[in-house]
């Protein structure tokens, strides 16, 4: 393991400046570190400088016009503890509380999860299903990119070397669900994960799947089989069949390709069944 020094700039501008100064590969931002530290240990990344984001004012959870925006360095534990997240974004709540253990979620962040872009990420499917959008902070200011466009492969994103994810913005609340299957139900990585969301305004569904290669992805062909808030069983069955047929699964140590196909079909059926309007907002 190569050594590095660690600093914690006080502002996003200072982090970006340090990234630019170090050049590509010379510096790495650090959020919770629960994934990055493995790469540092193994030497898969070997920056001379690690830039902790802990002093940035991004540990936030905001509601704008009733919609959620999550600061990229907010610990996941704070997100799951918010009662409104639980009722208004049930699929997101379910996904977040299934990332690692409680102690891991005291440090792990949503920004880190998206930037690290692990193929087995349990958060990216629900971000895809909810059509989350990233606010990226760079030397030229901000730009916005959907998670679907941001995550381009296994451990590959559209993030520029001198950019940071500032926040993750969700559209207004809508019914959503997250279902998973694991070798060990508790505290494991999913073999297959399915996230679904229904948009009442345009009566459309989004279906996303994780456990596929090279990255979690949307399944628009499956979603097209679903219409309205309560699709009939036959339509759900078609969506499940399409999802099973279209998901780019491979066999690995967690499951075989054919078992994943079997799983995705039942998980799509379950997730659609759980995608129900939230109860009325409490005061």
């Amino acid at each position: 393991m190569a050594t590095f020094d660690l600093s914690a700039p006080e502002s996003p501008e200072a982090v970006v400046a340090a990234l630019r100064a170090a050049g590509p590969g010379g510096a790495t931002p650090l959020a919770g570190g629960t994934d990055l530290l493995f790469d540092l240990d193994e030497g898969r990344v070997a920056p001379a400088h690690v830039l902790s984001l802990r002093r940035l004012p991004w540990r936030t959870l905001d509601w704008v016009a009733g919609a959620l925006t999550v600061g990229s360095t907010l610990p996941l534990r704070a997100l799951e503890d918010d009662p409104q997240v639980r009722t208004l974004y049930p699929g997101l709540y379910e996904a977040v509380r299934n990332v690692g253990s409680v102690a891991l979620r005291q440090r792990a962040t949503m920004g880190g999860n998206v930037v690290r872009s692990a193929p087995a990420s349990d958060l990216i499917p629900i971000l895809l299903a909810l059509d989350a959008e990233l606010d990226l902070f760079g030397p030229q200011g901000s730009r916005r990119l959907s998670v679907d466009r941001f995550v381009i492969g296994s451990r590959r994103t559209e993030l520029r070397p001198d950019e940071l994810v500032r926040s993750i913005r969700f559209p207004e609340p809508r019914p959503s669900a997250f279902c998973w299957q694991r070798v060990r139900p508790s505290n494991d990585i999913s073999q297959v994960a399915v996230a679904t969301a229904y948009s009442p305004s345009d009566r459309t569904w989004r279906v996303a799947v994780g456990g596929v290669q090279p990255r979690p992805r949307l399944l628009p062909e499956a979603a097209r089989e679903l219409t309205g808030p309560d699709p009939p069983p036959a339509a759900v069955g078609r969506a499940a069949a399409v999802a099973a047929a279209r998901s780019p699964f491979v066999s690995d140590r967690r499951a075989s390709e054919e078992y994943r196909r079997r799983l995705v079909a039942s998980l799509v059926e379950r997730a659609v069944g759980l995608t129900r309007p939230a109860p009325p907002r409490s005061a």
């Binding site: 070798v183 060990r184 139900p185 508790s186 505290n187 494991d188 990585i189 140590r253």
Partner: peptide, 28 residues
């Protein structure tokens, strides 16, 4: 139910950590 050390054909242990070699947690 869950424990299985997996060896490759060239004699490498695939799951050499507690993330991938799964002993029961309290939930199981």
């Amino acid at each position: 139910l869950t424990e299985e050390a997996i060896w490759t054909d060239d004699g490498r242990l695939v799951n050499d950590g507690l993330l991938d070699y799964r002993i029961p947690t309290l939930g199981e």
